[in-house]
Simulated assay, not measured.
Amino acid sequence: MPPFPALFISHGAPSIGLDPSPARDFLAGLGEAYERPHAILVISAHYDARRPTLTSGARPETIHDFGGFPDELYRMTYPAPGDPVRAAEIASLLRAAGFEAGGDPARGFDHGAWVPLRLMYPEADIPVIQLSINMAETPEWHFRLGEALAPLRERGVLIIGSGSLTHNLRAVFSGGFRIDSPPPAWVTAFADWMDAHLEAGDTESVLKAVEQAPHGSDNHPTMDHILPLFVAMGAGGGTARRIHHSSTYGALMMDAYAFGDI
């Protein structure tokens, strides 16, 4: 089995599992683009902890960490097994790289993990582990976290950073955007800048994107949804390849990238 790429996907609104869109179609076919992994490690924008923490339970629950959506969404589950043994191995790998990593056997799968995985692997029969981000740490810290995870790609583990290329919910709610609204210029300017620098392998610039890219702070008023990208970039190394490009609700770019795709 060749090494897996490290992926960054934009998971969008939880209702992506219900509403037709180009991003939904992309995610529904993404699981067939690569060999079946032995396990999946998801770094989600919705799992924030003070130290790198892995889901370590055998049967993680499905967390419905959102409000105001159709009842059907709250009835959905993703009963994929956890992998306590592999979680412990990943924690050891991170500790060897200087991170104070640990496990949480009670933590379940948040929607940044189970919503896209339900589209990618609907059978829910591949072990899944989540790894937290740390909103108090820098992009560089998250990149180093990804670098420590890189050996997993050769061990049959598919690493997925799940966030959003752009994520300003205040703009979504106040701007009157519909699901099919085109992205405004301040969103596309940032997305275009990111694509140019990601595909050029300009890691230093990408790590400073929120500070230096056009409208960086407008597109990421908080860092949670871009931090998984830095982890995927560290895990994959080299240049990125854009594997999906679309938008939803105007201000949410749904772009996805593969790092280290050979």
Rank of each mutant, 00 (worst) to 15 (best):
F66Q: 09
P84N: 08
M76Q: 14
G112V: 05
L131A: 02
T77Q: 15
R36V: 09
D125P: 10
P183W: 01
S174V: 03
Y78S: 03
Y257V: 11
L149C: 01
D255M: 03
L229K: 09
S21M: 07
R75S: 11
K208T: 11
E154P: 09
V210Y: 04
F99K: 04
L229I: 07
L117R: 09
I40G: 02
T138I: 06
T138L: 06
H197F: 05
A58T: 04
G260I: 04
A136I: 03
I43W: 02
T53D: 00
N168V: 04
E154W: 10
P70K: 05
R75D: 15
G12A: 10
M233H: 08
A251C: 13
P116M: 11
F4K: 03
I133R: 01
L18V: 10
H46C: 00
L198I: 15
P122Q: 12
R86M: 11
P182R: 12
M253Y: 05
I90Y: 00
D218K: 06
Y78R: 05
P127N: 05
D224G: 06
W141C: 03
I9P: 10
E154V: 08
I9M: 07
G250F: 00
H11G: 13
M194F: 11
V115D: 11
P139N: 07
A88N: 05
A33C: 13
A96G: 14
I129K: 02
Y121L: 10
T62L: 04
A148G: 03
P22C: 13
A136W: 11
S21Y: 12
M223I: 13
M194T: 08
G29L: 10
A113K: 08
G12K: 15
G108C: 08
A232D: 04
W141Y: 15
P5A: 10
I262Q: 15
D261H: 15
D224M: 01
F259N: 12
G260N: 08
A196I: 06
W141H: 12
R118W: 07
R155W: 07
L73G: 08
P81C: 11
S56K: 00
M194N: 02
L252S: 05
H220W: 05
R178M: 03
P5V: 04
F177H: 08
H245I: 03
S174K: 12
H142F: 09
L158K: 14
A148Y: 05
T62A: 14
T53H: 01
S181G: 02
P182M: 03
L7I: 10
G163M: 08
L54R: 00
G146R: 10
A6D: 12
N134A: 07
P70T: 07
E211K: 15
H111T: 09
M76C: 13
I129R: 04
P151M: 02
G17L: 12
E140N: 05
G31V: 13
G31M: 13
A196G: 09
L73V: 12
L198C: 06
R95N: 07
I179T: 14
R59G: 01
A101W: 00
G161Q: 09
A124L: 15
A97P: 02
G29P: 04
